[in-house]
Design a protein around this nucleic acid. Sequence first.
DNA 1: ACCTGAACACCGTTCAAGT
DNA 2: ACCTGAACACCGTTCAAGT
Lengths: 224, 224
Amino acid sequence: MTSTPRRGRPPKGERQLSREAIVEATLKVIDADGVGAVSMRAVGRVLGADAKSLYNHVAGKDALLDAVAEELLGGITLPDLTGGTRADLLAIAAAFRERALAHPEAASLVLTRQLASLEGLAPVEAVLSVLRDAGCPPDQSVHLLRAFVATLIGTLLREVSAGPTYGTTDTAGIAQRQSILENSGLPAVAAAAHHLARFDGATEYEFAISLALDALAARLADQR
Amino acid sequence: MTSTPRRGRPPKGERQLSREAIVEATLKVIDADGVGAVSMRAVGRVLGADAKSLYNHVAGKDALLDAVAEELLGGITLPDLTGGTRADLLAIAAAFRERALAHPEAASLVLTRQLASLEGLAPVEAVLSVLRDAGCPPDQSVHLLRAFVATLIGTLLREVSAGPTYGTTDTAGIAQRQSILENSGLPAVAAAAHHLARFDGATEYEFAISLALDALAARLADQR
DNA sequence: ACCTGAACACCGTTCAAGT
DNA sequence: ACCTGAACACCGTTCAAGT
């Protein structure tokens, strides 16, 4: 009288698997428990399906993580461009950051993986077209794009990995870090301990991006 | 007549395990096959010991990877400071890069992990002391340090993950990428396809760092 | 003090067997 | 066309049993 285990494709309207649903389920796992918690079995569990069934829709775990990264990158809603170079680049960067902070656990995937697809090219197009409209030649634009993206990625990686508690909330932790730094024996570190022990993502983001855009503007001015 | 399996601690001068040897062996695994190939069993194999023995010297796999990151960070040989702000920051960044490129497969560990130890504080001290000597107040120094490091990390992450073949060697790959970009339907991307399809780590590094240092110098000048 | 056997609860992935 | 059972070669980690 035990329930006889089924085999083969389920008979009726049991939910069909799809690549899209699988990617979505994976993102759910990541949001809940981090990238490290992703396994074919865990994703299958979310969908009520066997892990092996996923292989009918994705090539494997690595390809699945790539797909999640592409989904995130492709889901960025780019701003309408106004023609103001600085304002437009600021807005593009903000769109990037917004997406990263919406899925902080997944952000490292986008920031870290080498993506080959065309999906993620829209932000690149946006930045390059702003630079082109600013009168920047293509070779210079590509250099500036890469430097700008590097700063953006480095800044966001730090922000998402620092977590929200690093800053204002955890006063005990701040005090402890500060005293460690003060007693580090390193004079410049000790002198800056108060500031090193604190971190506010939004402030650091604005500082770094603003700095990068200043540098970029200076190069564009040189150009002319 | 089969060899009887030993149990308990081996009787004599069989190599002792040590935290240091374990970290070194892990780095060997990473250099050979990447971070993904690290497992307690694989590291044990390198040392001729059982994976479980490692737990007598490190808390677990995650702590082991942290230790590798700290070893890399701590092993950076910092330049003697000359008093020239730009030259000194350039030299510090170069030391960072040199270490990253010496272990490209391991670099993401250092660039990505949140390190809590004091080992990695020497580069921070170096940068902060250069900024202090340039007359920059501590709060501003910390912002500039973080922005500078973000650019450095973003740039190096790209360089190590791009691999050496992206640039000059793989002419077929370059041509293919270029034609994909030209046919992407994105006008600015298509216009810059020739440059987007190519990547030279050293050139991009110099461009990005130089840009960051220009921006930093401008801020220091404002200050006064 | 330190190493290992046995053991547990996991992995990713292949492939044939099913519907 | 798509799902699963059986199977394989892996994982990290605990703990008691040994020397």
